[in-house]
């Protein structure tokens, strides 16, 4: 990738918040966000927080199954978050409407399964606002 030649020095590193509104299967936005996040880290920038909102919460589904020759976007997010220790928040009101629940939410609503990758936390919009106040840039996908 040629753009890596422009890798900034650590002093030029910026803090980014990514707001992901796009669902993983029905639009390109989630894939673009994932590739953007990978590139940011490769170039030495910091990710303050990933915030999944609206249909974007489906990116945190641990129950997605993809054909073998297609990328599993939620699994790729999970791997990226784990490998880099990123802060990843899934909006609770978007999530429970779409069946994305962690074990606590599953118990609270008496559901039979948890569906949210443990690498993401179910949280509120306050965590988006908080991340913005600590960031240099915010990009919105979808």
């Amino acid at each position: 990738m040629t753009f890596l030649a422009n890798t900034p020095k650590a002093s030029g590193a910026l803090r980014y918040t990514l707001l992901i509104n796009a669902a993983p299967q029905s639009s390109q936005g989630a894939k673009t966000a994932l590739r953007f996040a990978e590139s940011l880290l490769q170039m030495g920038h910091n990710i303050e927080r990933l915030f999944f909102y609206g249909d974007g919460v489906l990116n945190a589904s641990s129950l997605s199954v993809m054909p073998q020759d297609e990328i599993n976007i939620p699994a790729a997010w999970h791997a990226l978050i784990e490998a880099n220790g990123l802060s990843s928040v899934v909006c609770v009101s978007s999530a429970i409407r779409r069946g994305i629940v962690d074990t606590a939410e599953a118990q609270r609503h008496e559901l039979y399964a948890a569906s949210c990758y443990t690498s993401s936390e179910i949280g509120g919009l306050g965590q988006l606002i908080e991340a913005l106040s600590n960031s240099d840039r915010m990009l919105s996908f979808g």
Binding site: Y53, G54, S93, L125, G126, L128, I129, E130, L132
Partner: peptide, 19 residues
């Protein structure tokens, strides 16, 4: 779509944090 409601929810959250 749910865009209108989601925009409003962000507005309320920003207001709570006095942003």
């Amino acid at each position: 779509s749910d865009g209108a409601r989601r925009t409003l929810d962000i507005a309320f959250a920003a207001a709570v944090f006095e942003q």
